[in-house]
Design a protein around this nucleic acid. Structure first.
Length: 615
RNA sequence: GGUCCAUUGGAGCAGUGGUUUAUCUCGUCUCCCUGUCACGGAGAAGAUCGUCAGUUCAAAUCUGACAUGGACCGCCA
């Protein structure tokens, strides 16, 4: 193919008077009769091609036959436009076509290839290659690529070694559910895809590589969310002979470079540190959104002797009364809207939502009559009330107060429009508990992971009162989302054993699962620490998208399936028997149904579109 | 495992039991048009209202089940 002069989107005034050869897709044809414009699009943008009577009948005929998304080669002369379009990068010029070659035709696409369209996720994913043609989606994928490049450059500049770790590993019952891959050579045995390269990277420190990084693909077989896909990429790093400060400095350096290279933003470092405790108490979450205030206040001291039993009762039961004040919320929130909020926080197990409005020097609302004059004064002082505020209260167990007020705070902030736009506010959350109690399983689990070093006090507590121990771990949080986290790792067998013990492992199980690690720790293992950043989530936030699907080229839908290729799908009996795998007969119907459906769809597609039997 | 919402021409929507031939916008097709850039103008085609069952004289509309999609809770060390 003939060499392209430049991308369509780069044909600016510099090219005036030059002959160009372009390739691209037809965005739009505007046929004005004897004058016709073609918007030709590629990944860099759009340039206007002009064809008119003087171009000759042959060229006009071709131009008139064009449809949207036809793939063209266009040769022509770049000329200055009579009417400049200031909204386009190429708006000063147009290409006076001398030759138009149709490289491929296109059927009418199921949706238009432009931004701000309203199409179902189903359709977008089924025709993902078309969705990916849309400028804003391309921009997000390109942004992701820029992050990847900045990351490689940064770690290379700082002497990190890029090491790939296996994707076929061993299943571990800790943590998320594994994706399993059956072994053909050992029927009945399974590999597991990595949830993260955690142990491999620690062992690489044992091997003396000292500074490791990897853009690691990770897999977790858990239900999806807007910010969770079953496969994703971690910017993974590990270092020897560094403490928290050392790892955080490298991380800040990396973030600084990414923000500069990708966004053109100068990130101020050092990034602020917040203790886990502060974060929970002021923001109700371990991933605080620090772009705005509206902090959570503990009002228990004010209400512990209140006549309002809902409040004093909750406190007497060992709970709390906590609240937030929403500026200008008194006018903005009707009783009806607040009832909706009450329903909303029920999902976090809150029993109810109490509220008062402070207007014209007085409190109103259903709870106001329970407030004594002292309560009122105390509230005014506590929240520094100026008038016009809505104050909401949750009286419940600590965890319920935190969860519901965290989510309320986020909602109120969004709705009252106090979140500054295009701001990327990072914060380190430090001084984590080592363990947290898992209500579901009824046992203690590692807050970070079981290889996290307790702090000095925590090491002592491991023998006496392990669940009070604090961890030497740190999370990097941005705009209320966890971007990454890491820790100082345990590098001594005795501490690692105590850790497993505190987690309720038996000696037998600990050694079956992690014996190799503890053996390694005994053979000259260096102190080490590391961190991993969730690349997809980071990219999503920089691209200011609200779904992680928008920064992965070929994501899964909310039910973990992929509607274009139809993954997952049943496999042949032969494949299964080779692996020694049998599908439970109770799934025969659904497997058959899926197979029939796929067959049916393929048949319909072939009948409608195939040229197989023609010519 | 659970909760909520959605499903109507190619796309997005309107339509609360009967004069609906199912609304509008975009797209598509035909014709006209030499300065458009979300071109404009005139016309046309295109829908067994997700599936199945039920209620009813009558169902896009009410009920139930299922399917698909989305959001959330659980889950995600």
């Amino acid at each position: 193919m003939e060499k392209r002069t430049n991308y369509c989107g780069n044909i600016t005034a510099d090219y005036i008077g030059k002959k160009v050869n372009l390739y691209g897709w037809v965005q739009r044809v505007r046929n004005l009769g004897n004058l016709l414009f073609i918007d030709l699009r590629d990944r860099e943008g759009i340039v206007q091609i002009v064809v008119n009577h003087d171009s000759g009948k042959k060229l006009m005929d071709i131009a008139e036959s064009l449809g949207n998304e036809y793939v063209l080669q266009v040769k022509g002369n770049v000329v200055k436009r009579s009417d400049v379009n200031p909204d386009m990068k190429t708006g000063e010029v147009e290409v006076d076509a001398t030759d138009i070659i149709i490289l491929n035709k296109a059927k009418n696409p199921p949706f238009e290839i432009k931004d701000n369209i309203d199409v179902s996720e189903q359709t977008r994913l089924k025709y993902r290659y078309l969705d990916l043609r849309r400028p804003s989606v391309q921009k997000a994928i390109i942004l992701r690529s820029k992050i990847l490049r900045a990351t490689h450059e940064y770690f290379d500049q700082h002497g990190f070694i890029n090491i790939e770790t296996p994707e076929l590993g061993k299943s571990s019952p800790e943590g998320a559910r594994d994706y399993l891959v059956p072994s053909r050579i050992y029927p009945g045995s399974f590999y597991a895809l990595p949830q993260s390269p955690q142990l491999f990277k620690q062992l690489l420190m044992g091997a003396g590589f000292d500074k490791y990084y990897q853009l690691a693909r990770c897999f977790r077989d858990e239900d999806l969310r807007g910010d969770r896909q079953p496969e994703f990429t971690q910017i993974d790093m590990e270092t020897s002979f560094l403490d928290e400060k050392g790892v955080q400095d490298y991380t800040e350096g990396l973030l600084k470079k990414i923000m500069k290279d990708v966004m053109g933003i100068d990130l101020k470092t050092p990034i602020a540190r917040m203790s886990w405790n502060d974060s929970m108490n002021k923001y109700g979450t371990d991933k605080p959104d620090t772009r705005y205030g509206m902090l959570i206040h503990d009002l228990s001291p004010i209400f512990k002797d209140s006549d309002f039993r809902v409040f004093s009762g909750a406190i007497a039961d060992g709970g709390y009364v906590k609240g937030i004040a929403v500026k200008n919320g008194a006018k903005a929130y009707s009783r009806k809207k607040l009832d909706k909020k009450q329903d909303y926080i029920k999902r976090y197990h809150a029993k109810g939502l109490a509220w008062v409005k402070y207007e014209d020097g007085d409190f109103s609302g259903p709870v106001a009559r329970f407030l004594t004059d002292e309560d009122k004064e105390a509230l005014k002082k506590e929240f520094n009330l100026e008038g016009g505020e809505l104050v909401v209260f949750v009286a419940d167990k600590w965890k319920v107060c935190c969860d519901s007020l965290n989510h309320l705070r986020r909602e109120f902030a969004k709705e009252t429009d106090i979140i500054p736009k295009h701001v990327f506010d990072f914060v380190w959350v430090v001084d984590w508990p080592l363990f947290e109690y898992d209500e579901g399983r009824g046992r203690w689990v590692a807050a970070h992971h079981p290889f996290t070093m307790p702090d000095d006090e925590g090491i002592k507590l491991l023998d006496t009162d392990p669940h009070k121990a604090h961890a030497r771990s740190y999370d990097i949080v941005m705009n209320g989302d966890e971007m990454g986290g890491g820790s100082i790792r345990i590098h001594k067998r005795s501490i690692q054993e105590k850790m497993f013990k505190a987690l309720g492992f038996t000696k037998k199980r600990a050694y079956e699962q992690f014996g190799y690690l503890m053996d390694a720790l005994d053979m000259g293992f260096p102190p080490h620490a590391g961190l991993a950043i969730g690349l997809d989530r980071f990219a999503m936030m920089l691209a200011e998208k609200d779904n992680i699907r928008d920064v992965q080229a070929f994501p899964k839908n909310a039910n973990a399936s992929e509607p274009m290729m139809h993954a997952p799908a049943p496999v042949s009996k032969g494949q299964l028997s080779e692996l020694g795998v049998e599908v439970d007969s109770k799934y025969s119907d659904s497997v058959k149904k899926t197979e029939d459906h796929l067959e049916d769809e393929a048949q319909k597609d072939a009948d409608k579109n195939s040229t197989w039997d023609k010519n």
